Amino acid sequence: MREYSIRQAVEADIDEARAVMLDAVYRDFGTGYVPHWHADIIDPVSFYVTPPRHALLVAVDEQDGTVAATAALDARGPAHPPNPGWLAERFPSGETAQLRRVYVRPGHRRRGLARRLVDGLLEFARADGGYRSVYLHTYPHSPGAMGLWQALGKVVCDEREEVPGGGSGAVHFEIPFA
């Protein structure tokens, strides 16, 4: 059985973390790199490593030292547009810890890595002391995502049902944060 360590990303992890994220947007989402949506993937240091209230965690495979999974957190709430206005009001920037880029390479899935990474991000957010809620959005076609987020949180908006025309198809979650 493989062993993994969960840690804050360091300089040596950045290229591999970026590769995990890019692989996910190409393979799992089929969108490929879209600059407007994925600038943080190209420059994770500026988005997640340098800002003191943000974090980028990685799961490192102890067998070969490679990055098997990523998860990030920042203080940006959902923007309106494209998200519904009431959602942006409910989860304002600065007070909201938004979970992002929770991606696991296919060969490392079903080993609890995403949950361990999310637990680490929630610990980080609690230690920060300035967050009052935890938010994320996902897409139903993302492998394993809906099951994970339904187990950890509650749906606050399913665009497929609540937004005229289905919006972007995103499902928005709040993770309990006490």
Rank of each mutant, 00 (worst) to 15 (best):
E95A: 12
A97H: 01
A97Q: 01
Q98T: 15
Q98W: 01
Q98P: 05
L99K: 07
R100H: 04
Y103K: 11
V104Q: 13
V104M: 11
R105S: 04
R105Y: 02
R105M: 05
G107V: 08
G107H: 10
H108N: 03
H108E: 05
R109F: 13
R109T: 15
R110Y: 00
R111H: 15
G112K: 15
A114N: 13
A114W: 12
R115H: 11
R116Q: 08
L117D: 11
L117M: 15
D119Q: 10
D119P: 02
D119R: 12
D119K: 03
G120Q: 05
G120L: 05
G120H: 02
L122Q: 05
E123D: 13
E123H: 07
E123K: 09
E123Y: 02
E123Q: 06
F124T: 02
F124G: 04
F124W: 05
R126I: 03
R126C: 02
R126T: 09
R126Q: 09
R126M: 06
A127I: 00
G129S: 00
G129D: 01
G129I: 01
G130P: 03
G130D: 02
G130A: 08
R132W: 03
R132G: 07
S133N: 14
S133C: 15
V134Y: 14
V134N: 15
V134E: 15
V134C: 14
Y135E: 13
L136Y: 13
T138I: 14
T138L: 12
Y139K: 14
Y139C: 01
P140N: 11
H141I: 00
S142A: 14
S142W: 13
P143D: 11
G144K: 10
G144H: 06
A145D: 14
A145K: 04
L148G: 07
W149H: 10
Q150S: 12
A151V: 03
A151C: 03
A151F: 03
A151N: 06
L152C: 07
K154N: 15
V155F: 10
V155I: 15
V155K: 08
V156I: 12
C157E: 14
D158C: 12
E159V: 05
R160Q: 06
E161M: 06
E161L: 12
E162G: 00
V163Y: 15
V163K: 13
V163H: 12
P164T: 06
P164F: 08
G165F: 02
G166S: 04
G167D: 04
S168H: 10
S168L: 05
S168E: 06
G169L: 03
V171D: 07
H172C: 09
H172Y: 11
F173C: 04
F173Q: 06
F173V: 11
